[in-house]
Design a protein around this nucleic acid. Structure first.
Lengths: 181, 181
DNA sequence: CTACCCGAGTTCCCCGAGGGAACTTAAGGG
DNA sequence: CCCTTAAGTTCCCTCGGGGAACTCGGGTAG
C-alpha cells in the first residue's frame, strides 16, 4: 500500500487526513474520548485486530494525540488518554456523527444523542462562523490562500466554490437513504 | 485488507467512517467541492493512482455523495459533482482543516483561509450547539442513547465523557508542533 | 508452591487493496 | 494519418490489514 505521504502537502485537510484518514483512527478517538481507554477494551469494543490497534495507538501517541499512562501500579497497567490535541478532534467526530445521523439513521432515528450541558438540551452540532455564529456551508464561504500556503500552481485549498449549483433539486436525506438501500 | 465492514454498526461515526475513513475520500471531496471535478484533474492534483481514484469515485457515486454527469457532448466528457449529501460533508472537511491548521500550521500560518461571505470576514469554523450557539467540546457535552440505537452491552456512542481531566497542563499547539517535529 | 487468569502487547501467515505504469477506447486537432 | 486529450482499465508487486496464536509480567486461588 505504502500510503502516499500526505502530511507534507500544503493543505491542512491533507495533513489531518494523513493521521485521521484511516477507518480505525476515528473510532479509536471516539472510544478514548468516551472513556474506553484500555487496550483490551478497545480491541474488544472495536473488533479491531490487536496488531493494528497497537500500531494505531503508537502512531497516535507519536503524534501527541494520545498519551500512554499508567493507571495502576500493582499490577502495572497502562491505558491511553487524549491530550488537548486529541480532544480537539472532537469537532471532527461531531461532524462525522452529524452527517452519519442525517444520512444513515434509519426510521428509528439516530443511535445516539448529544446533550449540551451548557443549555441542557439535546443538540445537533453545526459548523458555525466564529465571528457571527452563522452556519458555514459550501455556498456561503470561499477560500483564499493563507500566509502558510506556498501559493502556486498545484496548490489546493478548500473551496473556490461551486460553479453552477442553483438547482435545489437533487436528493434529500430520505432519497439518499433509499438510494443507499 | 478486507476492510472490516463498519457500516452496520449502531454508530453514526462508524457509518460515516466506513465511507469517509479513507485517506483519499476526504481529499477527493475537498477537490470536488473546490471545483476540481474532472477525472484527470483529480488524478493529477491528488497524485492518486488512477485505479484507486476510479474505485473511490464509483463508490462515492454509489453512495449518492457524487454524481457523474456529462459536461460536454462533443467529445463526450463526464465529470463529478457533489450532491446535497456530498455538500453536507463540508463541515467534516472544515473541522479537519481547522484541526490541521491549529496543530500543523507552521510559523507562517495556515495554508488557506476561509472567508465567510455572510459577514465578509475570514473565519475559523467552530462546532456549535444548534440551540444556543455555544461551542461544543468534550467537556460540555454528554452522550445518551438515541432512539435508533440498539441499546445494550457493547453499544458505543460518543461521549460518556472524561473521567479525570482537570489538570490544564498538557500540551499547547506549539508544544504539539514541536513534539511532532 | 504451582496452576491458572488477567492485561497488554508481539509474532506469524495469508490475502487483498494500494502504487505505478502501461494499455484501451473514443473523439478531435494539426 | 498520426498525435493528443479524457476517462478509465489492466497488470504486476508490495505492503498493510485480518485473525489467531504466542509472550511476558504479575496477580490470585487452591
Amino acid at each position: 500500500m505504502t500510503r502516499t505521504p500526505l502530511a507534507d502537502v500544503a493543505c491542512s485537510i491533507a495533513r489531518a487526513t494523513d493521521l485521521f484518514g484511516d477507518a480505525w483512527t476515528a473510532l479509536i478517538m471516539r472510544d478514548v474520548l468516551t472513556g474506553v481507554t484500555r487496550f483490551d477494551a478497545l480491541a474488544h469494543d472495536l473488533g479491531i485486530s490487536r496488531k493494528v490497534l497497537a500500531a494505531r495507538l503508537s502512531r497516535l501517541v507519536e503524534e501527541g494525540v494520545l498519551v500512554r499512562e499508567r493507571y495502576q501500579e500493582r499490577p502495572p497497567r497502562e491505558h491511553y488518554r487524549a491530550t488537548r490535541k486529541g480532544e480537539e478532534l472532537y469537532p471532527v467526530l461531531l461532524a462525522l456523527m452529524e452527517w452519519g445521523d442525517r444520512w444513515y439513521a434509519g426510521p428509528a432515528g439516530p443511535p445516539a444523542r448529544i446533550r449540551h450541558l451548557g443549555c441542557g438540551r439535546d443538540t445537533t452540532p453545526v459548523s458555525a462562523c466564529a465571528h457571527c455564529g452563522e452556519p458555514l456551508t459550501v455556498g456561503n464561504t470561499t477560500q483564499l490562500p493563507g500566509p502558510g500556503g506556498r501559493t502556486g500552481p498545484g496548490t489546493r485549498v478548500l473551496g473556490p466554490l461551486l460553479s453552477g449549483r442553483e438547482d435545489g433539486r437533487e436528493d434529500t436525506p430520505e432519497a439518499g437513504r433509499a438510494a443507499a438501500v
